[in-house]
Design a binder for these strands. Structure first.
Lengths: 341, 341
DNA sequence: AGATTTCTGATTTACGTACCTCAAATTTTG
DNA sequence: CAAAATTTGAGGTACGTAAATCAGAAATCT
């Protein structure tokens, strides 16, 4: 049978109280005694029964998610996933709160972070903007002992405890690889559509994309990057413009959101002359576009995984526990029309 | 604060014992009373505290994994993952046992299943062979109240409780899509390499691959399927043969294991004339081959996810609980050299 | 109506850990 | 060496649920 604290106490020849002190790092145990207990733990292979421990502690974690008030499908999904986490929170011993801030606005994000800090939560997850003032605000949170996780988009590694998102550089490189191969022998022009280069995820995707394209597919020409703030209407307009100016456009890499606008334009094109299109995030619209051959590939990050991972990570960090890196890695899903879930 | 059974009892005006009877489906409660209690549960939004329940029950699940004694990297990884699950089993209230059987041998699998049944475990996971006698053995297990999950390769849906693996038909279709596009304008000949068409996962991949190729890329010619029993040496030999007979071979889809043999042959080829190669399962050798451009894409299923999912599913089924389908879906990973983890 | 069966209530113990108190034993310090 | 400080032991309660017993109440049957 699994050994319990009682077994440890008996084996080590000490009392239950002492075992408890050792296990929970409480003071008042001599080094010799502590060693005895730790040896007993090692020898009997004791592992703390988490169910019992949680029950006894009845600890609850106060967490806060700061999300941009963006109305693209991805952010809506992300918010829904946080809300589902809230629905589960009773079971998970967590109290989760959502704070909305204007998108792409470092100042608003910083003041939200400072306000949140006043409530002294155990952890904060935020969709970061990679700016010095945001990093400073994150540092302030951490200085107060609040765990900080970035969600979807990162800041410099030193200012947060963990990043819950994909390797965006790899995503950009993958997109370039697919683009280069899908274009095949056709030397073409490729347009790149971003939300904003203020956010690190978009920047990293762009860099990855450009580097692989330059190295492995040097004959592909690249148009200047279009920033459309993840807004469908703006995306639509800019894509229409680009197609007018470059009728020979043979590829589009949409590395941000707002793909509804892009798809509206694609629908109007002659199927024979449709460019190769690679986009990010599987939503209702990109899924339909994949299915009807308007989009060729979708790179996806699963917001559900990201949110659940963030909750786990923040809890662990709040308790000073290590994070299981392998488990928390968020994967890049590649969807073609044939492997849609 | 979260309501407890005591709150339910007070609210419904019944005793704790009655609430317990309702919650755990024990007999001896009148319909009217049961309704009262259920209403109280609904109104107070009671959710059973799993930590406490598990603690009180101190139930342990006896599970058994029947694995083929195959020595390809994938099966080795799978076994390692089961061993890790065993290492975790103390924490997870499970006792997990591994039984090895010869690969591709329905008779051996069936006798292993029957032997396992004698020990009356709570659940059995097996890498299935899709044969009538295996289905019958699975039916026998389930008739004895033992939960059955198929791992990696499935049998007919009616004979098991759950399949822990990828949608192999979608994997085959995806491979065909990539193959068709990577071949681009070149009308080529494609060779297909399978382990054995006795196992359903290989059959399904094949069917998916053929159907998409026929429909979307009709100009691609397909050579007769080669069955190499997932054995590296046999794979090497058959691929060498195929290349000799068809010097114009422009694509290879390796839908089974034993890719070490394939890679050995690929290394010897003139890089300029190397065929497009799509393989399954990210192992040390396929990873290196991806990296050095010998393989173009690898479709992968994560054995870790599959094993963990199997454990969760078997536990749930053993308790007669429903399975959260969305959570247990195993994804098809697509790896190019640019998104290797 | 009386006997029988079926419900229901009250109470208790157990699960394994956390956390608290108080007293006793031991070590350290002056 | 005595006083002070530290370490340890003993014991208890709590967490929320499961599961059991036993007695009493209500419903059903004859």
């Amino acid at each position: 049978m699994k050994p319990t604290v009682h077994d440890i106490a008996r084996f080590a020849g000490v009392s239950l109280a002492t075992v408890d002190r050792v296990l929970n790092g409480r003071p008042g145990v001599r080094g010799v005694t502590r060693d005895k207990v730790e040896q007993a733990i090692a020898q009997l292979g004791y592992v703390r029964d988490l169910a019992a421990a949680n029950l006894a502690k009845s600890r609850t974690y106060n967490l806060c998610f700061i999300l941009p008030a963006n109305d693209n499908s991805f952010m809506i999904r992300l918010r829904e996933e946080v809300e589902e986490a809230i629905a589960r929170s009773a079971v998970e011993r967590a109290r989760i709160e959502i704070v909305e801030v204007p998108a792409f606005d470092p100042g608003a994000l910083v003041s939200a972070m400072d306000e949140v800090a006043d409530r002294k939560p155990d952890g904060v997850a935020l969709v970061a903007i990679d700016a010095p003032e945001v990093r400073a605000a994150a540092d302030r949170l951490r200085a107060e002992g609040i765990a900080v996780a970035t969600l979807v988009s990162d800041v410099g590694a030193s200012s947060r405890d963990h990043f819950c998102g994909i390797d965006n550089s790899a995503a950009g490189r993958t997109a370039a690889n697919l683009m280069g191969r899908f274009l095949s022998k056709v030397d073409g022009r490729v347009a790149i559509l971003a939300g904003s280069l203020l956010v690190r995820d978009h920047r990293e995707r762009l860099e990855g994309f450009l580097s692989v394209l330059a190295e492995d597919f040097p004959r592909v020409a690249i148009l200047p990057v279009i920033e459309a703030l993840d807004d469908p209407a703006m995306v639509e307009k800019t894509v229409r413009d680009a197609l007018r100016r470059h009728p020979d456009l043979s590829g589009i890499y949409s590395l941000g959101a707002g793909n509804r606008g892009l798809i509206r334009v694609l629908k109007e094109l002659d199927p024979a002359r449709r460019p190769v299109v690679i986009a990010h995030e599987l939503t209702r619209s990109t899924r339909e576009a994949l299915h009807s051959d308007l989009i060729d590939a979708v790179l996806n990050q699963d917001p559900g995984h990201e949110v659940r991972s963030a909750v786990r990570v923040l809890k662990a960090k709040a308790d000073g526990l290590p994070v299981l890196t392998a488990q928390e890695r968020i994967r890049i899903d590649i969807f073609l029309k044939d492997n849609l879930p």
